[in-house]
């Protein structure tokens, strides 16, 4: 049975007359890695700030483990909101020691384990202010996971990381999710990366959650396309319409998109050729998360 870790119901937030969160609801089940996707100012960070109570919630409700969220419940949450923060003049070890005292953690070895886990063992005695952005992200993550939270909230955690840093960070998150069963709510502008780590996605546009989709569903939607390039589009369209039941779209005077990967491509080729339509190419179209997002936002804008 799925266990709901976080339940966000009908939350709203306004700054003056500007409504930045409009009736947003979603749930996170145990083990989810929920990718929150949206442009700048869409409301991703505000949602995270509302969950962590850094922004006061006036309307709607947020429940953690089926109980209304409060400061006590936040003990089970680790968060890096906007930018990773640590005391500049303290070293990596001292910053983590500080969190350990704050959270009542007495296991001294745990600090070293976490430092090793995030790959900062060589920076143990380096002051936080002297760390690179990537290293600060790691320290932020270490601070967030030291108390072994059930829910980890990461706001743009891969900002400023180099490509190898991004890959390592992804592995870290997967490790946390698989080995420690931590549920993760993550936002990022780098959609390819978010696609790799997330198991579910929520699309935010103008403060509204316009779509929720699992990775499986997304894959299904994105892979359902065959691009057919022919010399006679009109004739080909008539043949497909008559002999194949699949939905299709005429893209231009040479290309047709068939919205299914289940169609027998060799039979399609054979039938078209037999009807004097030259098939120039037949290619599988796999759309990315970016394409999906662009289409989704495009659709909403037109509505």
């Amino acid at each position: 049975m799925e266990k709901t870790i976080l339940s966000v119901s009908n939350i709203n937030k306004s700054f003056g007359k500007n409504k930045v969160i409009d009736n947003v609801s979603f749930e996170l089940q145990k083990g989810d890695i929920y990718g929150l996707i949206g442009s700048n100012g869409a409301g991703k960070t505000t949602i995270m700030r509302l969950i962590t109570q850094l922004s006061p919630l006036k309307s709607g409700s947020i429940k953690l483990f089926d109980k209304k969220i409060n400061q006590q419940a936040l003990k089970h949450v680790g968060a890096v909101i906007e930018t990773p923060v640590a005391f500049d003049r303290l070293t990596v070890r001292q910053n983590l020691k500080l969190v350990a005292i704050q959270r009542g953690i007495n296991d001294k070895k745990k600090i070293l384990k976490i430092i090793k886990f995030v790959g900062l063992e060589k920076k143990l005695n380096t002051k936080s202010k002297n760390l690179s952005l990537g290293q600060r992200q790691r320290l932020g993550l270490a601070i967030a996971i030291l108390p072994e939270p059930d829910l980890l909230i990461l706001d743009e955690p891969i900002n400023g990381l180099d490509p190898s840093g991004i890959i390592e960070f992804r592995k870290l998150l997967e490790k946390l999710n698989h080995e420690r069963q931590i549920t993760i709510l993550i936002s990022s502008h780098i959609l390819t990366e978010l696609y790799h780590v997330s198991t579910r996605f929520g699309f935010i546009y103008n403060g509204q959650l316009i779509k929720e989709i699992t990775k499986e569903q997304l894959d299904k939607v994105n892979q359902s396309g065959l691009i057919l390039t022919v010399d006679n589009v009109a004739k080909a369209a008539r043949i497909i319409d008559a002999k194949f039941a699949d939905k299709f779209t005429v893209l231009d005077d040479k290309n047709i998109l068939i919205h299914s990967l289940d169609i027998d491509s060799s039979k399609l080729n054979q039938v078209l050729v037999m009807n004097d339509v030259s098939v120039i190419s037949l290619t599988k179209k796999e759309k990315s998360l970016e394409d999906y997002y662009t289409n989704l936002i495009g659709g909403v804008k037109h509505d």
């Binding site: 962590t52 109570q53 850094l54 400061q71 006590q72 936040l74 003990k75 949450v77 680790g78 968060a79 909101i81 906007e82 930018t83 923060v85 640590a86 005391f87 500049d88 969190v99 704050q102 959270r103 601070i143 108390p147």
Partner: peptide, 19 residues
């Protein structure tokens, strides 16, 4: 002052402590 200038209150206030 440091808590606010370095925004470390974000860590402190998510640690379970009330305002």
């Amino acid at each position: 002052g440091y808590e606010f200038s370095q925004k470390t209150y974000k860590n402190t206030l998510v640690s379970g402590i009330t305002r």
